[in-house]
Nucleic acid binder design. Structure first.
Lengths: 178, 178
DNA sequence: GATTTATGTCAACAGTCCTGACATATCTTC
DNA sequence: GAAGATATGTCAGGACTGTTGACATAAATC
């Protein structure tokens, strides 16, 4: 009495589905569970500071892009300025992030992580790094680059470009060697 | 004027950080962007039906576990029953999910995806499958298994077990071959 | 000086998750 | 069969995060 719906032919929406079907299904679940558990370790730390995931993301990208402008941060996060404003307000009020007037353009607010903010950020990164190091230890270097390739390919071209300075100048784009 | 904070020694929170540091940082970002873009393609479809991500997740796991009980679904999703109730109500009211009284235990509500729900679910899976197929085409089979290994290793042991029937009976646990 | 740009702010609404407290049927056990 | 445990539901209220729409200000640019 369980599972009569799961093996119906994939006829309606996917016309003649390629064989990758079950692999894709598994990957969908891998994404779900891995991402959930990955964010969970950070969420637990954030709880102690009464911060949410949005604060984490903002803090992270400010930390790795010291002096970033609000506009650029908005581009990375892809949320509205009103959403970001709420989050930034909190980070600034609690002293985790500071701001400085732009040197060349005084309209800009350059965002910086404070010493206190860096301590929290280090803690957050460390928590996730532990998971990743463990994951990388279980996988050989080839697997690691496979992971990287797949993740990059899943992304939007726009997001993929954020990583390109790190990519070897090979083609991961249209050249399918066939 | 950009980046004075990003290269400070990792002295505060991570005692003597291994060399994997920059790889870990990159992986953190890979997770963020890949997951975001991966869910985005589904979110766009869901918008047309005025449904959210929570509805997607519930629909998905009901679809791949036809006749699942509310309790089991709660275990998978790891949310409270009040949260799930709201989501299920909507799915049932809109005819995407149906329920049936448990055969052996009449307290149970067995959840099933309706034909209409299956159509939507197929559409959602197809959208993400397209991304994955493209990603898998760009990566050789070894890379694919590397992706899989890393994602599995990131997870909680508990979640990893959900995949174990599919895993070869090797040890990905404590055996580090050293 | 007029326009555009970078940023902020007020207000309202929606989705998702949480906690706490009760209620109801239905098993299970003594 | 009565008592307790279990599966599920529901009401109430609160928090975080994201959205839209409208308006405000300062600084850059033309």
């Amino acid at each position: 009495m369980d599972g009569p719906l799961s093996d119906l032919p994939t006829s309606l929406a996917s016309p003649a589905a390629p064989p990758l079907d079950s692999a894709a299904r598994e990957a969908i679940e891998l994404m779900f569970f891995a991402y959930r558990d990955f964010t969970d370790v950070a969420d637990r730390i954030l709880e102690d500071h009464d911060l949410g995931r949005a604060h984490h993301r903002a803090l992270y990208f400010i930390g790795t892009n010291g002096g970033i402008t609000v506009g650029h941060l908005l581009e990375i996060l892809n949320i509205t300025k009103q959403s970001l404003a709420r989050v930034l307000r909190r980070l600034i009020d609690s002293g985790l992030v500071t701001q400085r007037v732009g040197a060349s353009d005084r309209r800009q607010r350059l965002l910086l992580v404070s010493a206190q903010g860096q301590t929290l950020l280090d803690e957050l990164i460390e928590a996730q790094r532990v998971l990743l190091v463990r994951a990388f230890e279980h996988a050989d270097p080839a697997s690691l680059s496979g992971f990287r390739q797949v993740m990059l390919s899943i992304m939007t071209e726009e997001d993929r470009q954020r990583f390109e300075p790190l990519l070897p100048p090979e083609s991961t784009k249209t050249t399918r060697a066939a």
